[in-house]
């Protein structure tokens, strides 16, 4: 079976700093893969490289077996099977256009009749618990949680086989966060998509992902099956991360 995403020896420097320093990862098809690490560890840069938004200095990225190409045509083609949910959903929605305009654009890209797009959109919005009226609103008129779900709806409307979510729960309350994660779990099961979750929330990654990688300063320090990665971490940094995690310890 080909991997959904395979990265080998990715190198990228921003001036003095090495954003990616020899990153190699294989993300199996149909699984959920977690990438954890602190800010500045290169998680988001890696995501941008996988999406083709950031050229690597060296190394190779293959999506579903095919090497990642740059250029407009390749970017457009790739949009059909790999979709991002960015960290700040409000920033990925244009403040000047209604949600509907954004969604209609998907139909244009897919060369699909608008009616068909709207029909699918209706199903997705329903599934995400968004009122149908949300499409007539501007991004500033909806709440942060709703904006995040709109960003997910847009990503799903493209019928991707790979979904990359950058910090999907950042800034959400615990009561809402569970809702969103359950939703991602449902989508995964019903549509058999590959889900990549970038997060600094170790507890969530541990529950949602099959495999995970721990990044630090542009390097993958440890990767593997989640159970053993979190159960018996080999790397000192992974242990440090786990030890620092504030947990609701049982009442003594």
């Amino acid at each position: 079976m080909t991997d959904a995403i395979s990265i080998s020896q990715a190198q990228l420097r921003f001036g003095e700093t090495a954003a990616l320093d020899g990153v190699s990862l294989a993300i199996p098809n149909g699984s959920c893969f977690g990438i954890v690490g602190e800010s500045g560890s290169g998680k988001t840069t890696l995501m941008r490289a996988v999406l083709g938004l950031q050229k690597l200095d060296r190394g190779e990225i293959r999506i579903l077996g095919k090497p990642l190409l740059h250029g407009r045509a390749a970017l457009k083609e790739r949009a059909g099977f790999i979709q991002p949910i960015f960290q700040d959903p409000a920033a990925s929605l244009s403040p000047r256009s209604r949600i509907r305009t954004l969604m209609d654009e998907v139909g244009t890209v897919l060369r699909e009749p608008l009616a068909a797009t709207h029909e699918r959109l209706h199903v997705i919005l329903n599934r995400l618990g968004l009122p149908p009226g949300v499409v007539d609103k501007y991004p500033h008129e909806i709440s942060g949680g709703q904006a995040r779900r709109v960003a997910i709806a847009r990503a799903l409307l493209m019928k991707p086989s790979i979904l990359i979510a950058d910090e999907p729960t950042a800034g959400l309350d615990v009561s809402v966060q569970g809702d969103l994660l359950n939703l991602l779990q449902d989508i995964r099961r019903s549509q058999h998509i590959t889900l990549v979750i970038i997060s600094h929330n170790l507890a969530i990654v541990r529950l949602i992902a099959e495999n995970a990688a721990v990044m630090r300063a542009g390097k993958v320090v440890e990767a593997g099956e989640v159970g053993s990665l979190f159960g018996s971490p080999q790397d000192a940094y992974t242990r440090e991360l786990l030890a620092a995690w504030p947990s609701v310890s049982a009442a003594k």
């Binding site: 809402v176 966060q177 569970g178 099961r189």
Partner: peptide, 10 residues
Amino acid sequence: DASENRFTVI
């Protein structure tokens, strides 16, 4: 099976 894990919601 990681896809079976559920999260609590209010």
